[in-house]
Amino acid sequence: MNHTYTVAVMVVIALITLATRAFPFIVLGSKREVSERVLYIGRVLPPAVIAVLVVYCLRNITPLTAPHGLPELISVGLIVALHLWKKNTILSVLSGTVCYMILIRTLFV
């Protein structure tokens, strides 16, 4: 096992990851006043990005071939229904995850 190589890989990953996270703060955060445009993006970007992340998480489902994304769609359906009904984040997340884990082990192996 070559420790120097492993350390080098981990340092490079850590630094570049940090750079991607720090980039907007370095470019736009140094000014004393945050501009109106950045404040606007700051308000409206989060709901847009969360919608993107939902699609991103479901990106590997295959609508045209089995199992047609059914384990995901059924579980998401359960989460939506349960959350509109009970409005309890933990309950919705746990039930959806358990439902998915059961489906991929039983009906959609």
């Binding site: 709901p47 847009a48 969360i50 919608a51 939902v54 998401v76 919705s92 995850t97 998915y100 884990m101």
Partner: peptide, 28 residues
């Protein structure tokens, strides 16, 4: 899948604000 579930729930919560509807549609 718990990450997917979290984002779905946060999306539903966010959509309670009418002003979030267009941004969420744009993202989708």
């Amino acid at each position: 899948f718990s990450m997917t579930a979290l984002f779905v729930v946060l999306l539903i919560n966010g959509l309670k604000k009418k002003s979030a509807h267009i941004p969420a549609l744009i993202g989708a």
